[in-house]
Design a protein around this nucleic acid. Structure first.
Lengths: 101, 101
DNA sequence: AAAACCCATCGTAATTTTACGATTATAATT
DNA sequence: AATTATAATCGTAAAATTACGATGGGTTTT
């Protein structure tokens, strides 16, 4: 089946908002972010203890949040400390705010 | 491969927020909602003209937005008029606001 | 150097999403 | 009753997502 591979061009903000929303589109990722907001920071292992999910699955969710720019990891051997990416968080906040204004 | 079919229990708001976010997680759906906000309402056909997508594809996106509760359709034969679901819109707005507070 | 620890990545499978054209359903018009 | 208009739904295919266990790559500790 044919499927248009060239994608539609949307406004800058539309793409960005959809990207953030997509990253937020899974309860586990929302829960991870809530956890990070409360704790300010945490290690992967902490989250593996919190959720009944495999370590690799949690890691994958973290990767998506990182790819979306919502979190960032800091090497703290032998662990990795994850925090909210405040800069992008502000951008996301602003985009959602003006979307729902 | 085994895969846990029983799902994790999240807080009420976490599930709800993820559901809304997921619906917003595609640029076409963001664009549709922006259009609805500006126009206040519109018909499926209007959107088919706006986006370079098949009618069935647009209809599918509308269905998802409807399932998420973000829009509602009103029979206006032979058309269907779509509007933002103000009640749920307010809920979504509140959930995102308190999430990003 | 070996063992232990933490976590990303790989490989894989099931499921869901996204897109299309074709068909169907409903209502209005002729 | 037949035709037209509008839009949902069906069937299908490709791609992406979500989950798991297993493996591997750095550090630190022994």
């Amino acid at each position: 089946m044919k499927r248009s591979t060239e994608h539609i061009v949307y406004k800058e903000n539309t793409e960005a908002l959809a990207r953030f929303a997509k990253a937020l589109g899974h309860p586990t990722r929302i829960a991870i972010l809530k956890h990070l907001e409360k704790q300010s920071c945490c290690f992967t292992g902490d989250l593996v203890d919190v959720f009944p999910l495999a370590q690799s699955t949690v890691s994958q969710h973290l990767k998506e949040l990182k790819n979306a720019g919502l979190i960032q990891g800091e090497l703290k051997p032998p662990k990795i400390k994850y925090c909210i990416n405040q800069e992008n968080w502000k951008i996301a906040k602003r985009l959602f705010n003006q979307f729902f204004k």
